[in-house]
């Protein structure tokens, strides 16, 4: 499985398909740096930036995952599948690694701000944990929109955008449990370190359950397909 992860990451890097994600990441980093926390409560602002960055990580990871998983042509994925039966797991893990690498670049900007203005370490640790789960959630959305699930590239792009929008909008209504709690963690982060840390367990539990359900659905769907695409 490690060999397959290396194979997929190598293909992703050599194909330059990572460039769009990298460019967006760098733009986001520039955006973060352009709004350096100042004023009466820079710690609160820096903590809020953690929440904002984590929210951006979801679509970034989703796009990166879809891009990576679709790097291999369909027939090559068949060949890979014959060599490594658990190639879906390996593919998702490779996608997570690629997304995590980009998100680490994105996370570096608010981290630098937080260290500069003196955000508590516990808050930073909580933000890092949130970033990991946000990245995972985004990767799963990307996996659902990959060619293995949706063969048509146009349809898969539509699904990706729709899923990202739905996971945001569902958080506004009674079906909030189906959503990725972007709005909740952004609000908690902008309320300061204390409230952010207090809200974190619930947010993390929500995200973990969401990821488990979506990942299970992904693997079951892949397994039930009579023809891999």
């Amino acid at each position: 499985m490690i060999a397959l992860i290396r194979f997929q990451l190598a293909g992703y890097l050599r194909s330059s398909r990572f460039l769009p994600s990298l460019i967006v990441t760098l733009l986001l980093v520039m955006l973060v740096f352009s709004q350096w926390p100042t004023g009466p409560d820079p710690v609160k602002l820096a903590t809020g930036t953690y929440g904002d960055a984590a929210a951006f990580m979801v679509p970034l990871a989703a796009w990166t995952t879809r891009s990576l998983l679709d790097t291999q042509p369909t027939v090559q994925r068949w060949l890979t599948l014959l060599a490594v039966r658990r190639s879906a797991v390996a593919g998702l893990f490779a996608a997570f690694l690629a997304s995590a690498a980009l998100n680490l670049v994105l996370f570096a900007a608010p981290l630098l701000q937080a260290v500069t203005v003196g955000v508590p370490f516990k808050t930073t640790a909580a933000a890092a944990l949130l970033a990991v789960l946000a990245c995972t959630a985004g990767a799963l959305i990307g996996a659902w929109s990959s060619r293995a699930i949706i063969p048509g590239s146009g349809a898969s792009l539509l699904v990706l955008l729709s899923a990202l929008t739905m996971t945001l909008l569902l958080g506004l209504g009674r079906l909030g449990f189906l959503a990725i709690p972007y709005l909740d963690w952004i609000k908690a982060a902008h309320d300061g370190p204390a409230k952010f840390q207090a809200a974190l367990p619930g947010l993390l539990l929500h995200l973990v359950l969401w990821c488990v359900v979506v990942a299970t659905g992904y693997f079951v769907t892949l397994h039930r397909r009579s023809s891999p695409t």
């Binding site: 190598a10 293909g11 369909t74 027939v75």
Partner: peptide, 26 residues
């Protein structure tokens, strides 16, 4: 199982050596 497809997928960013090395590693 070894499977040689009718049309080998050449649309991959590898040299022959690199590709075969990856496939061997798999």
């Amino acid at each position: 199982v070894g499977y040689a497809p009718e049309r080998f997928p050449t649309d991959q960013p590898f040299t022959v050596t690199a590709y075969l090395a990856h496939m061997a590693a798999l």
